[in-house]
Simulated scan of single mutants.
Amino acid sequence: MNKLTISNISSNVDLDDPRFRIRPYQQVIASCTGAFITSVFVTPLDVVKIRLQTQQKAMLSNKCFLYCNGLMDHLCPCANGKMPEWMRRNGKFNGTVDALVKISKTEGIISLWSGLSPTLVLAIPATVVYFVSYEQLRLYLKDTYNREFKKRGTSVEQPFWIPVLAGGTARIWAASLVSPLELIRTKMQSQKLSYAEITEALKTVVKYSGISGLWMGLSTTLLRDVPFSAIYWLNYESIKRIFHTSQQTFTFNLAAGAVAGSIAAVFTIPFDVVKTHRQIEMGEKEIYSDKPIRSSNTWSIIQRIYHQNGLRGLFTGLTPRLVKVAPACAIMIATFEHGKRFFQSYNARKANEFEIERNVHLLQHKPSSTE
């Protein structure tokens, strides 16, 4: 009997081996731990990124008259207008480190975790839907694709388009599910608002835009996140394929996730800037105006940012985004892969124990030969 040990499973068996493939509920457990750790770690960086992009948006709104009369203050960044309180206290941020220091001094270090509660509420379901959807869809496409080739007597590895398609599709489902929570988190991080103020803001949005207003900015979120996921999973799976002969340890997964996430973040940062601008406009046009209207479309925002600040404006917040995304992707994928290996070892051990019991049962009930 060829007994499989846990060490053999961890080092020699493909994680996609159908015999020991982990179940969806095991994928859920594997993805939850990383979601919690990542949320706590990256929230301060997310706050800084949002503040930098909010600052840029305020400077772009150059519609001030020679004085502020209290009637048009919500449309212009006047010193005594309705600009965020933190902007008056802190002054202009000159970068990521400067923002971290100033926010900590003037608002307290706890304010760096503004929006953590909706982030946690957002992160768990979003991560579960995202990772489980990705794994299930990737494995389904891979099995279907290989099944067709096996009929012809050949076998192929996973083609590059499978992680691209699976990652993009999974992100659409996850982003659509948590878009209202993403809207709340962006508002809480762009300026210090109480839950009562957030509730009133959401009521105003629903009143004038209907329930669909809670999904404001979803198109730009998808425009950012779908390409990000496609690029990320393509790079991550490619790195795994290139180094398939190496032992893919927790450290390896950390490094691969950080590299893949950084590449994807650079390519998609302009859409992150646009997403932040559109969702902050909920406070400028939909809340303070007597007759709220929908925010500008994606292309007009891109043109306005480029006209005012050039190409550099479209990459505002790139440093905190990279500092946030690289470790976030690293932690998420490393914990997920580690969880997959743990549960695959568990499944293999259970399968091995079942095989032993079955063989013992057959031996015990095998007719004895007396002749």
Rank of each mutant, 00 (worst) to 15 (best):
I9T: 13
F20I: 15
F20P: 00
R23K: 14
P24K: 14
V28N: 06
V28Y: 14
A30Q: 13
T33A: 12
G34R: 02
K49L: 14
I50L: 09
Q56H: 01
H74L: 04
W86Q: 00
L100R: 09
T106K: 14
I110D: 11
L116A: 04
T127E: 14
F131L: 13
V132W: 15
Y134D: 12
Q136D: 08
Y140M: 08
Y145T: 05
R147A: 12
F149I: 00
I162R: 08
P163T: 00
V178L: 02
V178H: 00
P180D: 01
I184D: 09
T186A: 08
S190E: 10
S194M: 10
T199P: 01
V205M: 02
S212K: 05
W215P: 05
L218A: 03
S219I: 13
S219G: 15
L222S: 04
L223H: 07
R241K: 15
H244K: 14
T251P: 08
N253K: 06
G257Q: 05
F267P: 00
I269G: 00
Q279V: 12
I280G: 00
K285H: 11
E286V: 09
K291P: 00
S295I: 13
S300C: 10
G317N: 12
K324I: 00
V325K: 04
A328T: 00
M332R: 02
F336I: 01
R349W: 15
E353W: 13
L363P: 01
